[in-house]
């Protein structure tokens, strides 16, 4: 098998994919313009898939494997190694609870308890109405504003459990 990592060369032939996966080919072309090739593209391609669908559909994983000429098992191995990748669909809004040190010593656990009560789901789950997906993340890097949660791209800092319901209401169903 022509495999970039094993023979030390970064060149891997790219096959023309089906129409459904044209966006992947576009991502490959973009990366090629940057001088990036072969298996090096695996993580950027998975990021492109997730950017499009919010998660990694099985058929797109298979298409990535085909495009890069690597076994599907390797694609799956990478997809499950990194925290960023999800194999199931997500809700409309993504809530990220910071579990970093600064948030921990400033009551992040109480916020999580309140979120659990408010949303009725556990971390890693999506509300039945598909409105929110709730994730725990290591550190959002906004420690000065601890405790912090991030909803989509917005930070909410110096939070108390009492403020949560009002904030959640501002995100539409």
């Amino acid at each position: 098998m022509a495999n970039g990592a094993q023979d030390g060369s970064r060149l891997v032939q790219v096959q023309a994919p089906a129409q459904r996966f044209a966006y992947l080919q576009a991502a490959v072309d973009d990366a090629a313009a940057e001088g990036q090739r072969g298996e090096e593209l695996l993580i950027p391609l998975l990021q492109a898939v997730q950017g499009k669908f919010g998660y990694l559909p099985a058929e797109d994983l298979a298409a990535v494997a085909e495009i890069l000429h690597v076994p599907l098992s390797r694609v799956y191995g990478v997809a499950t190694f990194y925290n960023q990748f999800r194999l199931t669909p997500v809700g409309k809004h993504i809530i990220r609870s910071c579990t970093g040190t600064a948030c921990h010593v400033k009551g992040a656990q109480m916020l999580r308890d309140a979120l659990q009560a408010e949303l009725g789901i556990a971390p890693g789950q999506t509300t039945p109405d598909g409105r929110f997906t709730w994730e725990l993340v290591a550190c959002l890097g906004a420690c000065g504003m601890a405790p912090v949660i991030m909803i989509d791209d917005e930070f909410h800092g110096r939070l108390t459990p009492q403020q949560l319901p009002r904030i959640l209401r501002t995100y539409s169903a």
Partner: peptide
């Protein structure tokens, strides 16, 4: 000299 950005995928 060429410089590229690689985005991590969340692994400490």
């Amino acid at each position: 000299f060429e410089l590229h950005i690689k985005e991590g995928a969340g692994a400490f």
